[in-house]
Design a protein around this nucleic acid. Structure first.
Lengths: 243, 243
DNA sequence: TAGTGGTCTAGACCACGCG
DNA sequence: GCGTGGTCTAGACCACTAT
């Protein structure tokens, strides 16, 4: 539901109420990955709506990136490799590399921590799991990541076998915890490396680094992850599409 | 039209053909800014379509950012302050400023030039107009811009009275040349200031600068502008929404 | 009050996929 | 061949804007 504290079915149009109802069932995990949803005819029958109205509700969820239609086959959950967007943007200027490949990920630490106050404010809790990773391409470290998620929404994440955490984290959120990252905001800025970051990235303390701070949100607008990624500013490139 | 070299009306669905027809009339300047388009009923009658089909065509153009619906009033051209996005992102960390205001613009030079080869390749021509501007907020320079557009598409741009060029360029493209910027790609990276940039920005040669390279596109995918903006890296912040 | 866009219906036929 | 989503119709009523 988009407004968990509101009844959602005030006097909204039928297609919005159906969209919310479907989003809630999706969020509840009623259909696993690659499951086919009820057909539009079935939804129309069950909700006493015309097919046109059902199509409008489904189209909303498609536009929001939750669902995927396959003509002749059915409507499915979409499981995007969302994490890859960070690296579709973060194109390291390696000659001969196109920057589209996903970097390897090396797990450095996972701990239950009280995060910095601003992060606690964003996530709405001081009980978080922190994940530190080093990501590298062609054997060279390019990005040091520091990730915070609310412990209550990710029970056991800090003890999942490391090999179950692939280079992409958002599919893990989805598959193991039913949490779908729908949106994110990135803030790119410039800083200098502290000793720890410098050691990880193989540069010198005080060298310029680029910082990407990302807040990720679920479909209902809850902040579900905050992370900061640091890379050598000298071969940094962040790409963004507008409009 | 989306595919100017194709007849566009092959055997496409009716709503797509109507969308293309409307886009062509918009591009031809049939309705000026703030003009009201024919009502959905009128379009349905004229094109021998049902209102539902017309609505789908119009909705496409709304989604693409060309049109804007106002219930009870009509459908209008949208004239977005698109240029402002650069500065919605480029939030200088000035205490007490929210970073949302649009910087003043000081025109430095306008010349007909052969651009650097990569820019010529992107724009598809070596005959361009280059515009240099310095943008400042609260009297302090924050961004030096270097802008290239194809001369053939902007006849007379280099001689337009300077006071007709406001802080926002994209509305000028639209109002004077009928060119609508629909999309852009930004590439953010870091470099060091050369003497000219340093002088403009009031920093020292060799200081770190952030560089935003932007390629802007029309609705049919033609690159219509390339620009590079440079600012002091130390109080730089670029914000991007994903998903 | 007249006209606009917003929602919704109850059908129809088509294009596609899959067994 | 059957069921799916994709397109389209010809209406209806509602909510809103402008006069």
């Amino acid at each position: 539901m988009l407004h968990p504290h509101l009844p959602s079915d005030e006097r909204l149009p039928a297609y919005l109420r159906l969209r919310d109802a479907l989003a809630a069932r999706i969020a509840a995990g009623e259909w696993g990955p690659d499951a086919v949803l009820p057909s539009e005819n079935a939804l129309a029958r069950d909700h006493h709506l015309s097919v046109g109205t059902v199509r409008k509700a489904v189209q909303h969820l498609v536009d929001e990136g939750l669902l995927e239609r396959r003509q002749g086959s059915g409507t499915y959950l979409r499981k995007p490799a969302f994490d890859a967007t960070l690296f579709r943007f973060f194109q390291m200027q390696t000659p001969g590399e196109d920057g589209q490949s996903i970097p390897k990920s090396q797990l450095i630490a996972r701990v239950r921590v009280t995060p910095p106050a601003p992060v606690a404010a964003i996530l709405g809790t001081a009980d978080t799991i922190r994940i530190d990773r080093l990501r590298s391409l062609s054997g060279r470290p390019i990005l040091a990541e520091e990730i915070y998620v609310p412990a209550s929404r990710f029970p056991g994440l800090e003890t999942i076998a490391a090999h179950d955490l692939g280079p992409l984290l958002y599919p893990v959120y989805y598959d193991r915890f039913g949490i779908f990252v729908a949106r994110a905001i990135d803030d790119v800025s410039f800083a200098t490396a502290d000793a720890g970051t410098a050691a990880l990235l193989g540069i010198t303390e005080g060298d310029p680094v680029a910082e990407i701070e990302r807040t990720a949100f679920t479909i209902d607008g809850t902040a579900i992850e905050w992370r900061i990624a640091r890379g050598n500013a000298r071969n940094f490139r962040y790409r963004s599409r507008i409009g």
